[in-house]
Nucleic acid binder design. Structure first.
Lengths: 199, 199
DNA sequence: AATTTCATGTAATTCGTTACATGATTCC
DNA sequence: GGAATCATGTAACGAATTACATGAAATT
């Protein structure tokens, strides 16, 4: 979880712990916030493992420990991004999504499709339990499940949008680059298909 | 978390561990599932603490450990339900919601309002980071945040619905019963205001 | 001068998971 | 007779949190 986030951010540019957290909050604050108590130990651990490299840098103010991704870290990033796809944990998806720009269109599509399938299963299971639950009984529990299903449907619709755009782009440019290997040939802009309701 | 769930379910009727999990999955499966590896130890711990009482019962098939809530457990339930309201953790709310029928209208309203305020803050923070993020950069991250905000807005609308109904009912019946003490005078049915999209 | 923000870290604890182990009962 | 489900548990581990501790630099 945290490791994936760290690698994803550091891939964009080297950063120190404190900034890392700020960036993370910016992108994933709605879904997740890290505490320093887990961030700093994680950075050290990853340095020991050789996934990131540290450099002591004198910034504007005081000393900072600036980290960057190593080649081994690049591989780890892909591993973590693809890991647990068969049991795609709910909370982990936003993380994958936030760094989807770091991989090629084919992998992106695979990841999005997996997620969609998982949501559909969820929808099925939810409807099931709703039928079993509905007989009069618990109005709050029922409302909760209904609301959850509503969200799930929206998630699926959102993914469909993303997938459509993705596939459309895949047809145009034929510079495919698979799961492993070098850096992306400038990850192209993603035209946001989501409307902003009331800004 | 788990303790609240266990107490909430056992308040309705005594159950054994296995059934407890089934019920839990039914109501909260969309948001959370427990493993036996945590459920059984939790039951034992709660028994030691006196929050639940165990009885060995010969069911249809084999022997079962059937648990029920003690008076101390009733108090604990309320504590846990109200706990951490000032830092209302995202994942915990569905749990509160699922057992909202076990408390009186006043407390219900307070819980729902807290949640709403939290979501509004979240909305604010999200819009903020969206503004800061939007300049061209990361299309996936941006789309993710937008989508998250969309969900948050729906959550708020849902809560408004619930609150409206709740307040309306509070006006009619004046048999109020506060946070502590006895059992509710038959928790009244909640008219589900949520439309079922495609059943 | 005081407060806030920046910046880094450690230790104890919480809360859960996975994997393992066992065995009865029911269904086919 | 074999598989699936029911039913209960333990042990090892994981991933994060909270609380604690420190101190420099910027802001007011």
């Amino acid at each position: 979880m945290l490791e994936l986030a760290v690698l994803g951010l550091l891939k964009e540019r080297p950063m120190h712990g404190y900034e890392l957290r700020k960036q993370l909050t910016q992108r994933l604050g709605l879904f997740w916030t890290v505490s320093f108590g887990s961030l700093y130990p994680t950075l050290k651990r990853m340095e020991r493992r050789g996934a990131v490299a540290r450099a002591e840098v004198r910034g504007e103010g005081r000393m900072r420990q600036v980290y960057r991704v190593t080649p081994a870290g690049e591989l780890l990033f892909l591993d973590l991004l693809c890991e647990g796809l068969d049991t795609p944990e709910q909370e982990r998806f936003p993380l994958r999504m936030a760094f989807l720009g770091h991989v090629g269109p084919e992998l992106r599509i695979r990841l999005l499709e997996r997620r969609k399938r998982w949501l559909q299963d969820r929808l099925e299971a939810g409807s099931q339990s709703l039928r079993h639950l509905s007989p009069g009984a618990d109005a709050y529990a029922t409302s909760l499940v209904r609301h959850g299903l509503d969200h799930t449907e929206r998630d699926i619709a959102w993914l469909d949008d993303l997938l459509a755009t993705e596939r459309h782009r895949l047809d145009e440019e034929r510079g495919s680059w698979p799961c492993a290997g070098g850096t992306p040939p400038e990850p192209p802009l993603y035209p946001s298909t989501q409307e902003m309701p009331t800004p």
